[in-house]
């Protein structure tokens, strides 16, 4: 079936079966490989994107269920082809957060969503808001510091 979808401010047309998860539409049909596959069953949040501003598991969201609601991926978080970064990305760079980096797009998308709802989160609110995102490298400590830094406007 043909679908018109709105990704990072662009309308794209793709051919897919209705059950195809948004994750694989992004990665395999549109070449937006910044959104990562980690478990395929809503356990790790590596695939986190924003759908109409809300964080969502791209691996659990069938293309037919998204409609024309706007989707933002890690590639759409920065502007200017990656020259102007989101404050959360700036904080991630300032604290040198990533190790292997595979989970980080999902971590960043979750952090942006958390700060959207809770602009100055406590440690406990960060624990709660980020508990769904798995990192095997153990970057949790730096993620927490980076979220606090972004919340304070980069200080």
């Amino acid at each position: 079936m043909g679908y018109r979808i709105n990704v990072n401010g662009e309308v794209r047309e793709v051919e897919a079966t209705p059950d195809m998860p948004r994750l694989w539409v992004l990665r395999d049909l549109l070449g937006l490989t910044g959104t990562k596959y980690g478990c395929g069953m809503a356990q790790c949040r590596a695939c986190t994107v924003h759908i109409a501003g809300e964080p969502a598991f791209a691996c659990q969201t069938a293309i037919a269920a998204v409609g024309d609601r706007p989707v933002t991926t890690i590639e759409g978080l920065s502007t200017d082809g990656g020259k102007t970064l989101h404050a959360v990305q700036e904080a991630w760079i300032a604290l040198d957060v990533p190790q292997c980096g595979w989970c980080q797009p999902g971590q960043i998308m979750s952090a942006v969503a958390l700060l959207g709802k809770t602009p100055a989160p406590t440690d406990e609110q960060i624990d709660e808001g980020m508990n769904g995102n798995i990192c095997r490298c153990g970057t949790y400590s730096r993620i927490k510091l980076a979220i606090h830094r972004a919340a304070k406007g980069g200080v």
Binding site: R27, G31, T33, G34, E75, G82, L85, W92, I93, P98
Partner: peptide, 27 residues
């Protein structure tokens, strides 16, 4: 010293094995 690969990883631009795409590629 900050890592050389941080920026690419934070932007979602770093290419991992699972991200490789070639013309006419199947999966």
């Amino acid at each position: 010293t900050p890592r050389l690969d941080t920026r690419a990883k934070v932007l979602g631009q770093a290419v991992y094995g699972l991200d490789v795409r070639l013309p006419g590629m199947l999966t």
